[in-house]
């Protein structure tokens, strides 16, 4: 089984459009969306929902106000500024946990002298399998303000592997998250090939340098392509040079093409629209798939 991950460092470089195109070109594969924070792949790879699972992760502290004596121990000990107070008109101070800020460490729960704080498991999102024309797609939705996208990514990838095994598919194509943090690390761990899609901009170049640094930590075949290369050819060359020096293979460039946006508006991948950028992506696929 082989897993190809598409990442970008900085977001908005056309990563998802490329992934959708690769999925179409691969004809039959498990398609995975690990950009759990802003999952968009399903907008251009249409599917019908087959099954869904809850993503439970960590805990959330909740203060039971009828048992709280307002001693303030919890707010003193919480390092995440998650315990807030409101002053009631009668002078009484009410304590509550700001959900978005609670890391679920359990310190307040342990040290509350009145045992007034509950500590329940936290529902952080869902992950699902959908049926598409090109194979099963595993995708997820992290609740807003939830953390642990790395852990959800790990769940999604596990499901993708199981699906590939049970349906006898030997290829997984994954849309990765932006950035270089925990979600990206969780996406790259154990994958075989990575394609970095970047843009010829000063920020694209800067971000790609960070991505290269990160990928060095993994033993995987790495490829780099510059999208919209013709808006700045000299930067494109610089980026490709930096990639090549770090051992990245350069399977081709993708030209600036409004067709990519057009395909997105129509809800299909760039290669299906037969747009010039689609031709470029096809070449990249031919290079990577036989390599």
């Amino acid at each position: 089984m082989e897993e190809i991950v598409v990442i970008s460092g900085k977001g908005g470089t056309g990563k998802t459009s490329v992934t959708a195109s690769l999925a179409h070109l691969a004809k039959h594969a498990v398609i995975t969306d690990c950009d759990v924070d802003a999952a968009d792949l399903h907008l251009v790879v249409k599917g019908t929902l087959r099954e869904s699972y809850d993503f439970i992760s960590g805990h959330l502290a909740t203060i039971n106000n009828s048992e709280c004596n307002s001693c303030g121990v919890c707010s003193r000990l919480c390092r995440f500024e998650a315990i807030k107070t409101t002053n009631d008109p009668d002078g009484k101070v009410t304590f509550h946990v700001e959900e978005a800020l609670c890391e679920g460490c359990g310190v307040c729960v342990r040290f509350c002298p009145e045992n007034a704080i509950a500590f329940n498991e936290r529902h952080c999102g869902t992950y699902s399998i959908s049926e598409t024309a090109n194979g099963p797609m595993v995708h997820a939705k992290l609740n807003t303000a939830a953390e642990n996208s790395g852990k959800l990514v790990a769940e999604v990838r596990k499901k993708a592997k199981e699906t590939a095994e049970s349906e006898n598919l030997d290829l997984i194509i994954t849309d990765g998250p932006p950035g270089t943090g925990c979600a990206v690390i969780a996406t790259l761990t154990g994958a075989d090939k990575v394609l970095v899609v970047t843009e010829p901009t000063v920020s694209g170049k800067h971000d790609v340098e960070r991505v290269i640094d990160l990928i060095k930590h993994f033993k995987m075949k790495a490829y780099l392509t510059v999208n919209k290369w013709d808006i700045n050819e000299s930067l494109t060359e610089e980026i490709e040079k930096a990639g090549a020096n770090a051992g990245f293979l350069i399977p081709g460039r993708i030209r600036y093409d409004r067709g990519i946006t057009k395909a997105q508006i129509e809800g299909i991948s760039a290669v299906e629209l037969n747009t010039p950028a689609g031709t470029d992506i096809k070449k990249i696929w031919e290079y990577i798939s036989v390599d």
Binding site: D37, A38, A145, S149, G179, G181, T261
Partner: peptide, 25 residues
């Protein structure tokens, strides 16, 4: 970018937020 912990940490307590988007799906 996104809507998870790092963004919430950034935006919480600010006086105002500008959300930048594109007119695409």
């Amino acid at each position: 970018p996104g809507t998870s912990c790092p963004v919430v940490t950034t935006v919480t307590g600010c006086d105002y937020t500008v959300l930048v988007t594109e007119p695409t799906p």
